[in-house]
């Protein structure tokens, strides 16, 4: 009987602990705030244009990873979004990038990214981006090069 009581106490203790950690986690995730999101769209190719002076610093490390000779800035978009709100950034070739912040997990913003081409979804991903961090997304082909978009965020 004594063992049974101890077991019950332990189970209640564990449940409370779990509930406490769960609520802490939920609070962290649902901390509703504003997300400052910037999208820098670049067209990389093997052309002879070199590197656009406006993005030189941003793509310094990318130049070592990729083998393109030309990096041209296509556009820059900045959005201030609240969780659940979708912001759109135009991409070349009839594409649109839709960004929806889902919440915060620790020091990362949970973001949903979706790329549409002529209205049709082509690629979706959910990422956890560090506060003041950047992610480089690329690959879609456009006029002899590839589209690279750099997404940065702060909250």
């Amino acid at each position: 009987m004594k063992k049974f009581k101890i077991k019950i106490v332990l189970t209640i203790g564990k449940t409370l602990l779990l509930l406490a950690s769960f609520s802490i986690m939920m609070t962290a995730i649902s901390q509703a705030s504003q997300f400052d999101i910037s999208v820098t769209t670049i067209l990389a190719s093997h052309g002879k244009n070199g590197v656009d002076s406006r993005i030189g610093r941003q793509i310094k490390e990318l130049q070592a990873a990729f083998r393109y000779s030309s990096y041209r800035l296509v556009n820059k978009t900045h959005k201030r979004l609240v969780p659940g709100q979708t912001g759109k950034a135009p991409l070349p070739g009839g594409r649109v990038l839709a960004i929806t912040p889902l919440g915060v997990a620790g020091n990362r913003a949970k973001l949903k990214l979706a790329v549409f081409k002529n209205g049709q979804p082509t690629f979706q991903t959910i990422i956890q981006l560090l506060n003041r961090g950047r992610i480089i997304v690329g690959g879609p082909q456009h006029s002899g090069g590839v589209i690279i978009f750099i997404i940065s965020n702060s909250f």
């Binding site: 990318l62 961090g133 992610i135 480089i136 997304v137 690329g138 690959g139």
Partner: peptide
């Protein structure tokens, strides 16, 4: 990326 550990997500349409 090697130094700043920035994530690169590359996809082929």
């Amino acid at each position: 990326t090697p130094n700043s550990h920035e994530t690169i997500l590359w996809y082929n349409e």
